Computed example of a mutant assay.
Amino acid sequence: MTDEYDLPGPPGDVTVEPAVPDDRLDVLRILDAAMLETDADAVDDRIAAGDVLVARSTRTGGVVGALVAVRPASDRLHVDAVAVRRARRGRGIGSALVAAAVDRGKSDPAIEAVTARFDADLRAFYEALGFTIRSEEAAGDAADRGSDRLDGKLSVGGRESA
């Protein structure tokens, strides 16, 4: 359960909120600048479903970070992509975006876990947010064996999911 972790809020000059259709281009640009593969149609679908979060500057109103979540199973919310503008990195915006996704998972009674797949150099980032980490090989993902990608999972529901 996540109750033992204090999930971070956004920095004082940033709000985290669900993306609206007008945020689409900003979300795609931020993800592209982070070299994350993104399907524009999938982002549109996720915005419509309420599963894209943006970090917005309170000063300018501009989008400074974005998170796209998917629902690969009815009981799981998966962080598919998270990125922050280069000039704003290292200030807690990415952590606040993931924490907001975890809060969304906690508020949805159907969601048992929030998951993420990420590069090994992000291990400490996800561990600090309370995720349990395992390698893809340990998770049994034969498609990516030998990669340095990790899987993270944070249980948010009343029972542990597989």
Score class of each variant (00 low, 15 high):
residue 13 D to N: 12
residue 154 L to P: 03
residue 136 E to K: 06
residue 33 A to E: 15
residue 128 A to P: 02
residue 27 V to H: 03
residue 96 A to E: 04
residue 107 S to C: 11
residue 69 A to T: 04
residue 78 H to E: 10
residue 12 G to N: 12
residue 16 V to E: 00
residue 7 L to S: 09
residue 139 A to W: 04
residue 21 P to H: 10
residue 49 A to E: 13
residue 127 E to A: 14
residue 141 D to C: 04
residue 146 G to I: 13
residue 82 V to C: 00
residue 74 S to E: 03
residue 17 E to G: 02
residue 67 L to P: 02
residue 15 T to I: 09
residue 62 G to L: 07
residue 56 R to V: 01
residue 59 R to E: 13
residue 76 R to Q: 13
residue 162 A to C: 05
residue 18 P to E: 10
residue 161 S to H: 03
residue 114 V to P: 01
residue 55 A to D: 00
residue 157 G to I: 08
residue 54 V to P: 04
residue 25 L to P: 07
residue 103 D to N: 11
residue 39 D to W: 10
residue 3 D to H: 13
residue 33 A to F: 05
residue 1 M to L: 14
residue 86 R to W: 05
residue 159 R to Y: 05
residue 116 A to K: 01
residue 3 D to S: 15
residue 66 A to E: 00
residue 155 S to Q: 10
residue 59 R to C: 03
residue 39 D to Q: 13
residue 63 V to E: 03
residue 5 Y to M: 10
residue 99 A to M: 12
residue 77 L to V: 05
residue 131 F to H: 01
residue 29 R to F: 06
residue 119 D to S: 15
residue 109 P to E: 12
residue 48 A to Q: 13
residue 82 V to P: 00
residue 134 R to M: 14
residue 25 L to I: 08
residue 90 G to P: 00
residue 132 T to E: 12
residue 11 P to C: 04
residue 78 H to W: 03
residue 158 G to F: 06
residue 135 S to F: 09
residue 7 L to R: 00
residue 142 A to K: 11
residue 160 E to N: 08
residue 105 G to S: 09
residue 85 R to E: 14
residue 140 G to R: 13
residue 4 E to Q: 13
residue 73 A to F: 07
residue 55 A to H: 01
residue 8 P to T: 12
residue 3 D to C: 11
residue 17 E to M: 11
residue 14 V to A: 01
residue 65 G to L: 02
residue 132 T to N: 10
residue 31 L to I: 11
residue 55 A to C: 05
residue 58 T to I: 14
residue 34 A to M: 07
